[in-house]
Nucleic acid binder design. Sequence first.
DNA 1: TGAAATGTTGGGGCG
DNA 2: ACGCCCCAACATTTC
Length: 481
Amino acid sequence: MSSNTTLVWFRRDLRLGDNQALCEAAGRGGAVVPVFVWAPEVEGAWAPGAAGRWWLHQSLRALDAALRERGSRLILRQGESVACLLEAVRDTGAGAVCWSRCYGPARRDQDVEAALVEAGIEARSFPGALLSAPEGAVNKQGKPYQVFTPFWKAQVAGIDSGEPLATPKKLKAPQRWPASLQLEELALEPSVDWTGGLRGAWQPGERGADAALDRFLDEALSDYADARDRPDLPGTSRLSPHLHFGEISPGCVWHAVRQRAATEGRKGLVRGEEAYLRQLAWREFAYHLLVHFPHTTDEPLRPAFARFPWREDAPALRAWQEGRTGYPLVDAGMRELRTTGWMHNRVRMSAASFLVKHLLVPWQTGARWFWDTLVDADLANNTLGWQWTAGCGADAAPYFRIFNPVLQGKRFDPAGNYVRRWVPELAKLPARWIHSPWQAPAGLLDEARVVLGDTYPSPIVEHKAARERALLAYEAVKAQG
DNA sequence: TGAAATGTTGGGGCG
DNA sequence: ACGCCCCAACATTTC
């Protein structure tokens, strides 16, 4: 025990590579004590959901294993963050605490920093979860950006994130390790195991993140501009949960994509690379909005939407959640979500639009369901996505843009293979009818063993009528701007 | 990061 | 050969 021991407070940066806080601690030459504090109460209503807790459990185990390969280990504590950290400082005699900042409405970072400073402990925090720190970013009027493209051009597009920081080869252990809870004691995994589908779909942890990035670069990036909209193809990066938990840094991903152009001797980026970096920039934009408008997790950014005549419709909500709306693309997406904890973004837009516009259920209700079921549930991205869909957010889709789930299916799942995978009771229908089985000739339905209203539901709302109802509801918002 | 309604155009069938 | 109509294809506007 000596005052040149440094605590590394792991937050949502569950990696050893390109980790500023860890490198800072290791570079001091003294002992390093990695600590994770499970303090869900701080986030209040937005404590991690069930799927996110499952992922967190796996990721903490992977982080501990990686630390042990380097002569270290992860200390687990549970309770209020300030109290736990001060206690860990006392237990180890540490003189400093390093961490990667978490951006969001919770004020934990500020509380911890103030408490450490007051206790005479050095506090060093780093912006490792984002490409650029959001606090000071403002437009020419001195206000936060509310439109993506100017934000992209001024704040993100030109970033050169440079070489990622190397992984420390060895971490000096303290003379005696402080007490730690067992991972199981945090009770992050569900008591009734429903996570088989998650286990089959993902490899949480830094190694899984690196593997996902390598696959994406080798197999999907060049076609990303077009294939990213195709839920039937492996055209996306699938990095979202890894990025959420910081198993890979956005700077590392950004650098890897740009490096690809550099090694091929290109000055500019090809379409796919540019399109993917823009997606990473949407993540930055989401955090920018969350930091500057923290109330938008629960309230629409555009105040006029307080007047919107949302409906209470428990049976329709349940049908949506369970993937039995009668619209195959929506149902496929909602079942993919429940099974794997993830849904393709193109389908997220269609499914979310269906809940908000066809069913007139409040976007907050959808956001809450996604929060509990997505392994990549992220307060910034989830808030942005739902407010975008509902038309009440920054740079949002106008309310009168109403997705037609049949047309979206025909356009982006042309052979119907995505629907066949997740809605197997429709698998034998030919592509022509698979997105609108109610229009199929009776003989074909018979051959495909489909009985509407029995083996697969009839549509719970009729598209044209639902569209007109949504447009009528929107009048209430339009009236006074 | 829509879709539907409405408008325009041009090729081809046909009297 | 000509004008007329139909309608697909595309463009524009409206929600």
